[in-house]
Each structure stands twice: as C-alpha cells, then as structure tokens.
C-alpha cells in the first residue's frame, strides 16, 4: 500500500488530473483506537439488544391445574382456555392463518385400557367434528428423551361463520399419549402445515416442561 497511490475518481480524469478521493494513509493512534471502539461499541449495543430479544422471545409462563395435577410452561402471551372439553388449551393468538395450539387433556383409564383404545376414541370423536380428518401415522417414538406413543393427523379447519370467506386451512397435528396410572394424559399439538415444523420446538419445550 503506497501513500502516493492515485485513483481515478471521475470519468474523463486521468492520473495527472487533480486527484479525487486520493487515500491519505496516515491516521493517529487515537483514530485507530476510535475506529475499533466504534465497532466494539456497536457490537456491544447490538449484543445486548439481541440478548434481550432472545430472553424476551423465550420467556414462558407457568400453567398449573391442581385439580388435574398438571403443570407445564408455555410461551408467554399465549391464550389459555380451560372452558372446552379439555384440561387446557394454549393458543398463539398471533399465528396465521391457523392459531398454533397445544391441548392438554386427561382421559380415565382402566387396567386394560391400551394406548390404541385412547387413540381410536380420539379418532372417532374428531372424525365427527373435524372436516377431512385423517390419521397419518401412529408410532412409538422418543420425544425429549421420553418414550411415547404419538399419532400424526391432519384435518381441514374451516370457519363456522358462513359469511366470512376464510379459506380452509390444512392443519397438521400430533397427539402424544402418556398412561399415568388410572388416567391417560393426551398432549396435542396442532399447527398450520406451513408452520408445523417451525413451531415444533415450542411444543417440545411444553412437553419437556410437563409435570403430572
């Protein structure tokens, strides 16, 4: 790098013409330090911002139901509903077009109740209530280090209001069935097929935090 390098800056100018933007190399130690300081300061501020953002986006609230003996942590500012025919439903109010949700339910179980019985019962109930309900797969798997039976399903979510022109949404779902002595805990995750994979970690976090 030469301090006398001449650069062309404007069309029609030659190296002999008055220089445009000729680089002057000398800077003081303070200039260099300031230059590095700017980078450090900006990186510092941005890091703080990103850390705060990460903390904010991973914040959770505790759901506790003493009657059902169930606790779980779910993403902050999700809506909780306990009025349906389930123990609780956590729903992301901002998700579009289908509100990503996790349902927790308990079903009484007898000694001879099998996981398959529970899944069949769910299938019968849902096929009467949901459009185009289909079971995609039933399998044993390990989720968050726990061996569970899971059922993948899909259905078409439609708006009950006939006057609104909401396009039906294909929803993908997953049931996890856990037998707990005289009851069965069913954890259901449902999301629009487009976002199912993206939000799956959120479901795993809820599942991992579930205590009963």
């Amino acid at each position: 790098m030469s301090s006398t390098t001449r650069l062309q800056g404007q069309q029609g100018l030659t190296s002999e013409a008055p220089a445009v933007g000729r680089l002057i190399s000398h800077v003081t130690k303070s200039d260099r330090f300031a230059s590095i300081s700017v980078i450090v300061v900006v990186i510092g501020f941005m890091s703080v911002g990103l850390l705060l953002r990460a903390r904010d986006s991973s914040s959770t609230w505790l759901y506790s139901n003493r009657q059902a003996g169930i606790e779980a942590r779910y993403p902050a500012e999700w809506l909780v509903d306990e009025q349906g025919d389930y123990v609780a439903r956590m729903r992301d109010p901002v998700a579009r077009p289908f509100k990503t949700q996790v349902l927790i339910d308990t079903v009484p179980a007898a000694d001879n109740t099998s996981v398959r019985n529970i899944l069949d019962s769910l299938t019968l109930q849902r096929s009467a209530e949901l459009s185009a309900y289909r079971v995609l797969a039933v399998r044993d798997s390990t989720l968050a280090g726990v061996l569970v039976t899971e059922m993948d399903f899909a259905f078409v979510d439609t708006d009950p209001d006939p006057f609104v022109q909401r396009v039906p949404v294909v929803v993908e779902g997953l049931d996890i069935v856990i037998i707990d002595n005289t009851r069965v805990i069913v954890l259901t995750y449902m999301a629009d097929t487009e976002t199912f994979e993206d939000e799956f970690d959120t479901f795993l976090d809820i599942f991992a935090s579930l205590s009963y």
Binding site: M1, T4, L7, I24, S25, V27, T28, S35
Partner: peptide, 23 residues
C-alpha cells in the same frame, strides 16, 4: 484501497510529516 488501508495504515511519525488532507 480504503478498506485495505484500514488494515495496513502506518502510524504518523515525524519522519513522515504530511498534510492531513492532501498528503
């Protein structure tokens, strides 16, 4: 050049006293 100059910029010294603007 400007970016390269940042990395290889020599320190100003009395041996090379040049004008800040025109060099």
């Amino acid at each position: 050049k400007a970016l390269q100059g940042l990395a290889t910029m020599p320190a100003m010294s009395k041996q090379h006293q040049t004008c800040l603007v025109c060099g």
